[in-house]
């Protein structure tokens, strides 16, 4: 199995190289075609034409596009993604600092989506043939059509503004310190022993993570349900019934494990989409992650930063897909042992 996993991972990483090259080149071209002048923007408004021209040359903007890209690529390979024009800091460093917050949000959201999705899928399946089935079916379809930003707004309005149960801006309550060890706030607050910070961070995560989780759980729900329907046509389910196993035992002990394989494949794709979905939710909740960084970068036409962030999204999604495929190999005995 180890050999199989390794080949899979190596194959994935190898195929990631051309993908990343193409994506970065595309991003680069698109950003350069936009009618913004990074050289002018990086200087104070009162700069003269000569100063701007000098800055252009210093930034390499006078060169032809392929050459510019080559310069950028060389830098990127050495870990240098250029300087953020607006924030005047290293773009790579900025991304590295903000990424953990977004990963933390996405991971919590995925956990919520998985729990709701799997639980809901089992429930939907369990209700088959009852009077509640069409109702539950309809409900899941309605849920399926609510996007994450709508959930964000609804939750914010109901639990934040109306009921005032939970905070809805930022990562922790204002005034609390932000300990920094690994970059992941939940972990770091525990590491330094600040349980108040940990609690506050948890409370701040609830609404954005829930908004994302709710938006992505219905797909998992429905895929699990239909996979279960497929599995229940299999001979081993009949055979389990003939052995006198209870329906609960058959569902959880036999069918669920089989049905979770196709569900997992889908969940992997979903996680990639969910990760991009953090952008809007972060903006709604003023959550200091990649999403807000991106929005600021776009607003400032901060080309190096946009480029770095865009590429980061791409890398994360590729890594997630690799991880999910590896998990699939681990869970599926047909792939694991031959």
């Amino acid at each position: 199995m180890i050999a199989l996993l390794l080949t899979l991972i190596v194959r994935r990483l190898l195929s990631a190289v051309p993908i990343l090259l193409i994506v970065s080149a595309l991003l680069f071209c698109v950003l350069r075609i936009l009618p913004v002048d990074p050289a002018a923007m990086s200087l104070p408004p009162n700069a003269t034409i000569e100063e701007i021209e000098a800055q252009r040359r210093a930034m390499g903007l006078d060169q032809p596009l392929p050459q510019q890209y080559a310069i950028w690529l060389r830098g990127a390979l050495h870990g240098d993604f250029g300087r953020s024009i607006a924030l005047r800091r290293d773009a790579g460093e900025l991304v590295a600092q903000t990424l953990p917050a977004t990963i933390q949000l996405a991971a919590c959201a995925m956990a919520i989506a998985a729990i709701l999705g799997l639980g809901g899928g089992l429930l939907l399946f369990h209700l088959r043939g009852t009077v509640l089935e069409p109702l539950a079916d309809l409900a899941s379809i309605v849920l399926l059509s609510i996007p994450e930003f709508l959930w964000g707004l609804i939750l914010l309005f109901v639990f934040g503004v109306l009921l005032q149960w939970l905070p809805f801006t930022g990562q922790v309550a204002p005034g609390l310190p932000l300990p920094h060890v690994t970059g992941f706030l939940l972990l770091d607050s525990l590491l330094v022993g600040r349980f108040d910070v940990f609690l506050s961070a948890c409370r701040h995560l609830v609404l954005p993570a829930l908004a994302l989780g709710l938006a992505f759980s219905p797909t998992i729900m429905r895929v699990l349900r239909s996979s279960l329907f497929d599995v229940y046509l299999e001979d081993y389910i009949v055979q389990a019934r003939l052995r006198g196993l209870s329906e609960g035992r058959i569902l959880l002990g036999h069918a669920f494990k089989n049905a979770s394989l196709p569900t997992l494949t889908l969940a992997g794709v979903q996680f990639g989409i969910l990760f991009s979905g953090t952008l809007l939710v972060e903006v709604i909740y003023s959550y200091p992650g990649m999403g807000n960084l991106m929005v600021d970068a776009v607003r400032n036409a901060d080309l190096p930063l946009i480029q770095a962030i865009g590429l980061t999204y791409c890398v994360v999604v590729l890594l997630i897909n690799t991880a999910v495929d590896s998990l699939y190999v681990v869970l599926n005995p047909k792939l694991r042992v031959r």
């Binding site: 055979q239 006198g244 494990k257 005995p333």
Partner: peptide, 26 residues
């Protein structure tokens, strides 16, 4: 009562052995 008999006192040998064992369990 029937479930208590099935598997213990009454057992079944299926027609399609390859698909009658759960593929993800040993």
């Amino acid at each position: 009562r029937r479930r208590a008999l099935l598997g213990r006192a009454i057992a079944f040998i299926p027609q399609a052995p390859m698909t009658s064992l759960n593929p993800v369990l040993t």
